[in-house]
Amino acid sequence: MKIRVSAVQYQLRKISGFDGFARQVEHYVKLAGEYGTEFLLFPEFMTTQLLSIGDGQGEGLPITALPSFTEEYLGLFRRLAGTSGMHIIGGTHVVEREGKLYNTAFLFYPDGRVEEQAKLHITPTEVNEWNMNKGDGIRVFDTTKGRIAMLTCYDIEFPEIVRMVRAMGADVVFCPSCTDDRHGFHRVRYSCHARTIENQIYVVTTGTVGALENVDFMRANYGQAAILTPNDIPFPPRGVLAEGEVNGDMLVTADLDLELLGEVRQRGSVTTWRDRRTDLYPDWKA
């Protein structure tokens, strides 16, 4: 079975209201539809663009203002998933639960269902500057095209959590990201490659590009979308099915062959998933 996936290099630019955000999101969804996309990934913290609406005095809104846009955000993406027929990973949005802020990835199904996965590992900036809280528990999500997981940015740098979702049956991990410089970008990108090799899975990742001049900690972005594979003969030698131009405003698309994953897990040049030494280190199920 094959699935067509696309990842958006989302261009952050100042807007004057939610309508500006909605028009930009709808543009990418329509573009992906023209390519026959079935799963569409947006980046982490894409909704910080809403903070650029400002307070009327030229200053951006604080991070604590983002939860006030949650209903509009959910309504927009639910509508677009329904009209497009796609599964849409709507990047991440900051939500409030019992007075605490969580950086949360959302999966929008074509039939109107919405699932979520809060970010599990929080960076020092998220903690110290934005008072974000850690999510509890890891989930996988069943779709008509197989089982997937959503792990946000820093999460992909922890091999244990990706082992868990693979053990739970995920073949594709979608990794929305947001990094402000090359160091952060390459930490995430190299980690994504490592996870494809260790678990013989696909990873689809993308990040924000552009700048929000009046929003603290979103004044710089360094991003590139990539659709990544294990490094074995049926796949490209670099493990890259497709990637965008760094910091460009664009969409990246490729087809994932899920049957190839089963083949390399059984008969690949290396069989890293099958050959893990659970006698020396614990398996997730143990």
Rank of each mutant, 00 (worst) to 15 (best):
K2W: 07
I3Q: 08
Q11K: 15
Q11F: 14
L12I: 05
L12H: 14
R13K: 14
S16F: 05
G17T: 08
F21M: 08
V25T: 08
L31C: 01
L31P: 02
G33V: 06
E34K: 11
E38L: 10
L40G: 02
F42E: 05
M46P: 05
T48W: 02
Q49R: 06
I53Q: 02
D55F: 00
G56M: 03
Q57E: 10
G58R: 05
E59N: 15
G60Q: 04
L61R: 06
I63S: 04
T64I: 06
A65P: 03
P67V: 06
T70Y: 13
Y73H: 15
L76R: 09
L76S: 06
R79S: 12
G82M: 12
G85D: 06
G85I: 11
G85V: 11
H87T: 12
I89K: 09
G91F: 07
T92G: 11
T92Y: 08
H93A: 09
V94R: 03
V95E: 14
R97P: 05
G99S: 05
K100Q: 15
L101F: 06
N103I: 01
T104Q: 09
A105K: 03
F106A: 02
F108L: 02
Y109A: 13
P110N: 12
D111V: 04
G112H: 03
V114I: 15
V114G: 09
E115R: 09
E116K: 11
V127K: 10
V127G: 00
N128E: 12
N131S: 11
N131P: 00
G135Q: 03
D136I: 09
D136K: 11
V140E: 04
F141H: 01
T143H: 08
T143A: 04
T144D: 14
R147A: 01
L151H: 02
L151R: 08
C153T: 03
D155H: 11
D155W: 10
E157T: 15
P159V: 08
P159R: 13
E160C: 01
A167N: 10
M168F: 14
M168S: 13
F174N: 07
C175T: 14
P176T: 08
S177M: 12
T179E: 14
D180N: 10
D180Y: 13
D181C: 09
D181A: 04
F185C: 09
H186I: 11
R187Q: 12
V188M: 13
S191T: 07
C192A: 15
A194R: 14
N199M: 09
T208V: 15
G210C: 14
L212T: 13
V215R: 12
D216N: 13
Y222R: 08
G223F: 10
I227L: 15
L228D: 11
L228M: 15
N231V: 14
P236A: 12
G244C: 08
G244N: 09
L251H: 06
L251D: 07
V252S: 02
V252P: 05
T253P: 01
A254R: 02
A254H: 01
E259L: 11
G262K: 12
E263S: 04
V264E: 00
V264L: 01
G268I: 00
S269M: 06
W273N: 00
W273Y: 09
W273C: 00
R274G: 00
R274K: 12
R276A: 04
R276V: 00
R277G: 00
T278S: 04
D279A: 04
Y281N: 03
P282E: 04
A286N: 09
